[in-house]
Design a protein around this nucleic acid. Structure first.
Length: 428
RNA sequence: GUGAGUGUAGCUCAGCUGGUAGAGCGCUGGAUUGUGGCUCCAGUGGCCGAGGGUUCGACCCCCUCCACUCACCCCA
């Protein structure tokens, strides 16, 4: 026999109870986003390669070496989305959403794909939850989103996050930044690490983001994007910071925060967390004033701001001990049909209980009572319901409370009510 | 793409300077033929990642390959 097929590199199976954590993150996010007026958008997982190449940037790592791209049968190059902002912007333009009243608030969640070398907190398929606020460039939008994100992380039970904040300047600032940096780099570049020497040529902004300790003293002397902002961008950033302070959201100015997608302008941010290992960015995003415009939105209508949260990383932080609660059991009631004769009536009862809103999981009618009880307690059910010959005769069920071993006979019609009151009593 | 580490039972791992494998957990059964969790007993379980080499003899040493993990890079 040939070897059984296994997981593709960088992909993983999420098994219960881990899936519970993903559901919990998603539910919390959906609920919170709704309070801020966001509604869900679902874009395809497959897009034209061109979309990402033109927006994320030809020279970025994502486009340059991490995309899952292939030729469709009609020779169109398609790509498994490596991020969702470009796709949302595409949809925003394609469906002329700016014609709707007010700013457009959209959120999304789902899998993204990047062909990188896997490591802790980084997979080739990973889930992101993100939101986009489109249709303007008011600093108020930036602040609204950052406040919402702070609330989200608090609500998810994560303490100890840090918000790093920077402004990258507008499109007009960029060439100035790069010229200034290149100039400043000329004398010191030879003393920097190999990567930085390369970046000094290709993408000078990136040098600011270098993490090598030995390079830090030199890099500290370089001008930052904040030093070079033009007056309107400086004013915009000031207002964002003020609004954050008014809202009581703490941030750390991080003048060397540079993000890896080309469409970012002005406000850029990251929420990082210490429980995550080397890949400590839990969530990142920024403003993109020209993204949608480049895809065909009218001047001014395409500006916006967005973020993406790494769901896998959030769950990993939870698993590192920050989880707000235990995952629930498979079912609160375990049903034990004792013998084939008990099967049909037992299953009927199970259906009645489910219709009353209870969760019920049954075992195999051929199992021994001992195996049933053992299974029930190991599945963490709260009650075991035994239906055997005696019970059928009496039209009753034997209900055992697993936690304390108490057992009672309950008439079939009273079963649902029995569990309802027992649940209520436990909560009180 | 680069570097390092690790591959032994379903899972987590032990295995001394080379003498052809162990534990815990799990699973099955029993002590309790309709009563779980705790305990005790018994059983089940492995081409020691793959291929080659050295050796009388290799889980152990050498080479090649593969996989996984972590880190760099980059990012969520």
């Amino acid at each position: 026999m040939p070897p059984a097929p296994t997981l593709v590199k960088g992909m993983r199976d999420l098994l219960p109870p881990e899936t519970h954590w993903f559901q919990a993150v998603e539910a919390a996010a959906r609920e919170l986003f709704a309070r801020y007026g966001y509604r869900e958008i679902r874009t395809p997982i497959l897009e034209r390669t061109e979309l990402f190449a033109r927006t994320v940037g030809e020279e970025t790592d994502i486009v340059g070496k991490e995309m899952y791209s292939f030729l469709d049968r009609d020779q169109t190059s398609l790509t498994l989305r490596p991020e969702a902002t470009a796709a949302v912007a595409r949809a925003y333009v394609e469906h002329r959403l700016w014609e709707q009243p007010g700013w457009t608030r959209l959120y999304y969640l789902g899998p993204m794909f990047r062909r990188e070398r896997p490591q802790q907190g980084r997979y080739r398929q990973f889930s992101q939850i993100g939101a986009e606020l489109l249709g303007g460039d008011a600093p108020q939008m930036d602040a609204e989103m950052l406040v919402m994100l702070a609330r989200l992380l608090d609500r998810l039970g994560l303490s100890g996050w840090t918000l790093s904040l920077n402004s990258l300047g507008c499109a007009e600032d960029r060439p100035r930044f790069e010229r200034a940096l290149r100039e400043a780099l000329l004398p010191i570049a030879p003393r920097l690490c190999g990567d930085c020497r390369r970046r000094a040529e290709t993408n000078p902004l990136r040098v600011l983001d270098c993490k090598r300790p030995e390079d830090q003293p030199l890099i500290a002397q370089l001008p930052t994007t904040l030093d070079l902002l033009d007056p309107p961008c400086r004013e915009h950033f000031e207002q964002v910071k003020q609004l954050l302070e008014r809202a009581g959201v703490p941030y750390q100015l991080q003048p060397r925060l540079v993000r890896g997608l080309d469409y970012y302008t002005r406000t850029a941010f990251e929420f990082v967390h210490g429980a995550l290992g080397a890949q400590n960015a839990l969530l990142g995003g920024g403003r993109y004033d020209l993204l949608a415009e480049r895809l065909g939105a009218p001047k001014g209508a395409g500006a916006g701001i967005g973020f993406a949260l790494g769901e896998d990383r959030l769950v990993s932080a939870w698993r590192a001990g920050l989880a707000p609660s235990d995952p629930p059991p498979a079912a609160e009631i375990y049903l034990a049909p004792l013998g084939e004769a008990a099967l049909a009536p037992a299953l009927e009862l199970a259906e009645q209980l489910r219709q009353a809103g209870l969760s019920v999981a049954a075992g195999d009618a051929r199992w021994s009572a001992k195996k049933h009880l053992s299974t029930a307690s190991r599945q963490a059910a709260r009650w075991a319901v035994l239906i055997g010959e005696q019970e059928i005769q009496a039209r009753q069920a034997t209900v055992k409370t697993l936690a304390n071993g108490e057992q009672s006979a309950v008439a079939w019609p009273q079963l649902a009510e029995f569990f309802a009151t027992a649940s209520g009593a436990a909560r009180a």
